[in-house]
């Protein structure tokens, strides 16, 4: 059995995940459970059935295709999927003509990922771009990630790793030497708050951040939730840390409520997090604090 990874999206023409025009490879699986998660289909490692009810015509083709009887038609609600009876054979996906059913997460070999990644080589070359690995937490599938990063290096592609930083340090030590850039998420500096917001403590993450900056060029990425992690004091502390560790840039990513509908599409209950988007003036003030520390500040990039 060849090495395979579970990939839930390959986004070409990414322009916000590192320099230039990039292809971002999204790997499934994540140890964190952030309340604001915009890609809930990325959390579980295994492939999942995704629904788009808006496209469902109630034709019943999926009901016929399902050997387990996990799908039933109802007069009021179109088709209903009993996920507890589903064995993830995805026959229903093939049967659906209207693309109202899809699979989140496809098993791919490194060669297959590279086949897609290579397609935009001309754009990387002209723009100083390359390939970004994101998730989920890409380090979850570190064996697969290692293979693909090594293949990218072979091709001469610039690579970036977008990571939560929650992984054993030996994994970082194995992977980061192959990445030209680490995009390292810092979600909150307070351990208790961090645990509430993401489900995990931040001690390992902060230690790994220092480790990352030691190994490769590193940028911090801060998802900004109004009133949660966007105080001037918090940003000052992150900036000071960044300066001390030699981090080059801090990107401020103001929160958006975009991921909400996806929870139901993978059959999960949304944590119901209602976030606030910090206003532009405030974000600009925070950026200035970062610049005052001699660090490049990016807003939404």
């Amino acid at each position: 059995m060849p090495l395979q990874g579970t990939v839930f999206n390959i986004q070409r023409f990414s322009t916000h995940d590192g320099p230039g025009i990039r292809t971002t490879v999204f790997l499934k699986g994540c140890p964190l459970r952030c309340l604001w998660c915009a890609n809930p289909e990325s959390q579980v490692l295994a492939p999942q059935l995704m629904t788009r009810d808006i496209k469902c015509t109630g034709c019943g083709a999926c009901v016929e295709a399902c050997s387990r009887g996990a799908i039933v038609l109802s007069v009021d609600h179109g088709r209903i999927i009993h996920r507890d009876q589903c064995d993830l054979c995805f026959e229903c996906v093939d049967a659906c003509l209207y693309k109202a059913l899809s699979v989140a997460g496809e098993l791919k070999t490194p060669e297959s990922v590279m086949e897609t990644v290579k397609r935009d080589e001309v754009f990387y070359r002209n723009s100083g771009g390359g390939v970004t690995f994101s998730g989920g937490e890409p380090l979850v599938q570190h064996d697969f990630l290692y293979e693909v990063l090594a293949a990218c290096r072979q091709e001469g592609f610039h690579t970036a790793l977008d990571t939560t930083g929650h992984a054993p340090p030996r994994v970082l030590e194995k992977i980061l030497p192959l990445a030209d850039l680490a995009l390292f998420d810092i979600k909150h500096l307070d351990p208790a708050q961090h645990k509430i917001l993401t489900g995990v403590d931040n001690k390992l993450i902060l230690e790994n951040a220092r480790l990352a900056a030691n190994i490769t060029r590193t940028w911090f990425r801060l998802p900004l939730m109004g009133g949660v992690n966007d105080s001037e004091e918090e940003i000052s502390r992150v900036a000071a840390m960044a300066r001390e560790w030699g981090v080059e840039k801090i990107s401020l990513l103001p929160f958006h409520q975009g991921g909400e509908p996806k929870w139901a599409q993978v059959g999960l209950k949304s944590p119901g997090f209602v976030g606030h988007t910090p206003d532009d003036e405030h974000v600009e003030r925070l950026a200035q604090i970062i610049r005052d520390n001699g660090i490049v500040a990016g807003i939404r990039s």
Partner: peptide
């Protein structure tokens, strides 16, 4: 903003293609 440079790079890639 920054995207302008990316747009120019896009045009140059169009040229190379």
């Amino acid at each position: 903003g920054n995207m302008k440079e990316v747009f120019v790079d896009y045009i140059r890639s169009w040229g190379d293609l």
